[in-house]
Amino acid sequence: MALNTPQITPTKKITVRAIGEELPRGDYQRCPQCDMLFSLPEINSHQSAYCPRCQAKIRDGRDWSLTRLAAMAFTMLLLMPFAWGEPLLHIWLLGIRIDANVMQGIWQMTKQGDAITGSMVFFCVIGAPLILVTSIAYLWFGNRLGMNLRPVLLMLERLKEWVMLDIYLVGIGVASIKVQDYAHIQAGVGLFSFVALVILTTVTLSHLNVEELWERFYPQRPATRRDEKLRVCLGCHFTGYPDQRGRCPRCHIPLRLRRRHSLQKCWAALLASIVLLLPANLLPISIIYLNGGRQEDTILSGIMSLASSNIAVAGIVFIASILVPFTKVIVMFTLLLSIHFKCQQGLRTRILLLRMVTWIGRWSMLDLFVISLTMSLINRDQILAFTMGPAAFYFGAAVILTILAVEWLDSRLLWDAHESGNARFDD
């Protein structure tokens, strides 16, 4: 018995066209964080690309023209004298008006014999932002004059995390709450300039795509075929072959399989920071003279006294001054041990922890910024005066060393310790 099946006739004509040209192939790229070699397709503007294995951002879609970056830099340069030299806060102490600005706080630190601690604050609040705007201006002028731009481009990517104007702005709020127990506070004209400078700096850093600047100024022929001998440069993120001198053909720094002496430098910085954190938390970090009496505060006791007036601000200072430094030390110690013992479990967790400490590390400088600003506000000789204690130097040095330890660690070593050939990683 035959089955009668109805015929289905399409209502619209289906047209099949042959592909007349070869589909576009992607360029081969190595991930600078996990060293995976993959094919990167062509990316349009405002599109980002991520590593298929570790999800690290390979290409950032946010990109401004150099002219727009230069305009932002010149605007920031105009704001800087007002943000640093004009009063941020006014207080009335014992019937006398006192003005506080950024430069005055750094000068008070240096004047009291601790120039190293003052230079830490100076670099993060004044030096690094000033280098940022002058570097962008150098790129703008240098591109037109045919100057060598490689050193500036190499420095810009590392400079971003040292620009800490946003953290200093939080420190202004913390210092205001600490001082309000002794005097009446009012915002100064410099505060508005400083807030504007923070906003412009944040926007500029978020749109400063150094890798795209490398592509514009020093374009290189990408690798179009897969080759395990391809290496990625950690300076400019170019994937290719080393030249005859073993250097990256684009930025001219040595092109090595792994960062040289990464573990040794990381261990040295980490152990030194552990040693410095002990006096930083045991010795007094601030000293207040009130009517001839002397009151010393460690980091913890200062947080407890701050909690009596504002528990939320005390929580912020606790996280930045105690929780973050010790968390960074514990995480980095764990990561280094996992590399030495070739741990194969929990790779995803370790990668996330490394990215976390990379982002939060700079916030530990908050305590030094609060001390710097408070020193310029309260300084009335023996009637009422505020000065920093010996722990300030140890704390600042420990924070900087932990930042350097994270920067010096080559994250690809975590993958080397893991089993080879993993296309995915999980716990």
Rank of each mutant, 00 (worst) to 15 (best):
N4L: 05
T9H: 06
P10A: 08
T11W: 06
V16S: 08
V16R: 10
A18T: 07
R30F: 03
D35F: 04
M36G: 09
L37R: 06
E42W: 04
I43S: 06
Q47S: 04
S48F: 12
A49M: 08
P52W: 05
W64F: 13
L66A: 10
R68D: 03
L69E: 04
A70R: 07
M72L: 06
A73P: 03
M76N: 03
M76Y: 03
M76K: 05
M80I: 06
M80Y: 05
A83L: 02
E86C: 04
L88G: 04
L89K: 03
I91M: 03
W92Q: 02
W92I: 03
L93D: 00
R97G: 03
D99G: 05
N101S: 09
M103D: 02
Q104R: 03
W107Q: 15
W107V: 03
Q112Y: 09
D114I: 03
G118E: 11
G118I: 01
S119G: 02
M120G: 06
I126N: 11
S135T: 02
I136A: 06
L139E: 02
F141A: 09
F141W: 03
R144W: 15
G146Y: 04
G146V: 03
N148E: 08
P151C: 03
P151G: 03
M155H: 05
D166F: 15
L169N: 04
G171Q: 05
I172T: 07
G173I: 13
G173A: 11
K178I: 00
K178W: 00
V179M: 02
I185R: 01
G188K: 14
L191C: 12
S193N: 03
L197D: 03
I199A: 13
L205F: 10
N209M: 11
E212P: 14
R216A: 13
F217K: 15
F217L: 15
Y218G: 09
R221M: 14
R221D: 13
E228R: 14
K229Q: 14
K229I: 10
C233T: 00
C233H: 01
T239D: 06
Y241W: 10
D243H: 13
Q244M: 13
R245K: 12
R247L: 11
C248G: 00
P249A: 09
C251E: 00
C251L: 00
H252M: 05
R256F: 08
S262C: 10
Q264P: 03
K265W: 03
C266G: 11
A268F: 03
A269L: 03
L270C: 14
L270K: 08
L278K: 05
L283D: 06
S286L: 01
N291V: 15
G292T: 10
G292K: 08
R294F: 03
S301K: 07
G302P: 00
I303H: 01
M304W: 11
S305I: 09
L306R: 00
A307H: 13
A314M: 12
G315V: 14
G315Q: 14
I319H: 08
A320H: 01
K328R: 01
K328V: 00
V331H: 03
F341R: 13
K342M: 10
Q344W: 13
G346L: 15
G346A: 15
R348H: 11
R348G: 13
R355D: 13
I360N: 02
W363I: 01
M365Q: 08
L366F: 01
F369W: 09
I371P: 03
I378N: 00
I378S: 00
Q382A: 12
Q382Y: 14
I383R: 02
M388A: 06
M388Y: 04
A398D: 06
L401M: 12
T402G: 01
L404E: 14
V406C: 08
L409C: 04
L409N: 07
D410L: 00
R412D: 00
D416E: 11
D416H: 10
A417D: 08
H418Q: 09
